[in-house]
Write a protein that binds this DNA or RNA. Structure first.
Lengths: 294, 294
DNA sequence: CATGACGATCTACAATATCGATTGAGAGTG
DNA sequence: CACTCTCAATCGATATTGTAGATCGTCATG
């Protein structure tokens, strides 16, 4: 049907090396084989590509244009084979990673950037979820990895610990709770609690206070905005609010039960299906780079 | 070396028709031939492309990505063949046209736009020259066509007449010649004549007045600007100055020897080498559209 | 369990690519 | 002008590759 890549390659060699004989040498073939291939290509395309009238062969105008097109074709084929070789070498075709939105995106993105610079052929899909939604998605999408605050352990899951993240119970400086000390659970229940919406159907975070009024926000950016507006109180990872706490825009609630807690995020993957090279490399990068750094 | 287009085509057929047997039917081959091609492709790429464990074959993740790449390859090859067919059908690869700058670009550009819309594969090169420079370039570049005011006839050149263009001897309204009537050649010689620079080494236009002071401009746009600034007098094609003449910004010199002349532009091409389809089509478009229309 | 569709596999055969040698046509040299 | 050298087309023989046709095991379906 179409043109033959070998034939195009032969033509290319003839033109680049300036002759059938030299092309044949370069291709480790005999001259007649090259002649044959070029003839075939001309027959396939139905256009004379080389002008044989002179002592040296020369491209016809049409040949020039078609060869340029053909070279693009060869390049693309080259790319396809190198892509295939990478797959053969153990690079997986797809890698799905679920990330808990409470964790800083920056380190993850930097790791992905490094992967891109290393030209891995893998299509990486990164999804951000919250709370129980992380594991929910991990299982629903049959994802390869998740970076999560907490998860329900299972024998087929393996976890690596990442750097600790601290959470702070925050409130706007204008909020009634801001200036109070010795805040009790009862006090908290009189105010609105802000939480990030769980994308699964599971219950709430263990650190929630179980009051009457809870507003669910769609992410930590929205939650922070709501906090600053004085809508209510709520837990925030410190790295997201450290500047506001310094400036005093947000205040740490002086809650008697403790206004801080730390947790260790975990990089989780399956032990059933071994991870491909991209997955392993991404793991290295995430464990190496300090995930919780600002 | 690289992947084989036929094999890619076979894989594509298998996936699109959902099975080796159907693919074979669609390709007018027997099933084993398709099997062979797909096996070959997998061997060439070194990656399993189809998952044969199930009842129905299914693409592996790597196969999915590589097939997508392969389809692009097929499409490109398709384009290459169709391009070649057009060349085989008599569309030339290149077409060089020299245009006299005194003529309106618009019709020519419209014709070229039509050609582009008709998806001719030809690379068209349009060059604008002036006076003797047109034919000079035509010969130097071995161009295919020229649209010219005058040319030195030769037996191997054939010309078709286009629509007449009128030239007017113009001057700025602020110029001393603007309000005079019965202007003589002697009067003209006292002022600066504006002319467009000939890009060849040949002499001047036959319509020039042969005065002492002549300013040469690089094109009609520049000439018009110089005229409006009152730098001197000079011939302009009417279509370029009709608005200025109406408004009175420019005035027609009331020259006793005649302040207007008309000429018939000609579309010239060689009779020695027959024109290709693009050349013929462009000729049709230029002769059909009224070249001299505003 | 019988049936039918599917895809792998094998063999024989056909088509296609390569080899090695020859031919004739420029181009360079004395 | 004769000689040689390089170039590319051409040809017959051979090696490689692709296809047809038949068979086999597997899996889904009724």
């Amino acid at each position: 049907m179409g043109p033959d890549l070998d034939a195009i390659n032969a033509l290319d060699a003839v033109v680049r090396h300036g002759g059938f004989a030299r092309a044949a040498a370069a291709l480790h073939r005999v001259q007649s084989a090259v002649s044959y291939q070029v003839d075939k290509l001309e027959a396939q395309l139905g256009v004379p590509l080389l002008d044989r009238t002179g002592y040296r062969v020369q491209l016809t105008p049409a040949g020039e244009i078609l060869l340029a097109e053909g070279r693009r074709l060869l390049g693309q084929a080259q790319r396809m084979t190198s892509m295939a070789r990478q797959f053969a070498d153990g690079w997986e075709a797809r890698l799905t990673v679920i990330l808990d939105g409470i964790l800083p995106l920056e380190t993850t993105l930097r790791a992905l950037k490094t992967l891109a610079e290393e030209k891995v052929p893998t299509r990486i899909q990164l999804k951000v979820e919250y709370l129980g939604g992380v594991q929910f998605r991990f299982e629903k999408d049959n994802a390869d990895m998740m970076v999560v605050k907490d998860y329900l352990g299972r024998p087929d899951l393996e976890a690596h610990q990442l750097e600790e993240v601290e959470c702070v119970l925050c409130v706007s400086s204008g909020h009634p709770l801001a200036d109070r000390s010795g805040v009790t659970l009862r006090d908290l229940h009189e105010h609105v609690e802000l939480s990030v919406q769980d994308s699964s159907e599971r219950g709430d975070d263990e650190h929630m206070f179980g009051g009457e009024r809870v507003f669910y926000l769609s992410g930590f950016a929205a939650k922070k905005q709501a906090l600053r507006m004085g809508l209510g109180f709520g837990w925030m990872p410190r790295y997201l609010v450290s500047r506001e706490l310094q400036r005093g825009t947000l205040r740490e609630v002086r809650y008697a039960g403790g206004s801080r807690y730390r947790f260790t995020p975990k990089l989780v993957h399956r032990t059933t299906t071994p991870m491909g090279r991209t997955g392993r490399r991404l793991g290295e990068l995430l464990l190496g780079g300090s995930l919780a750094a600002h």
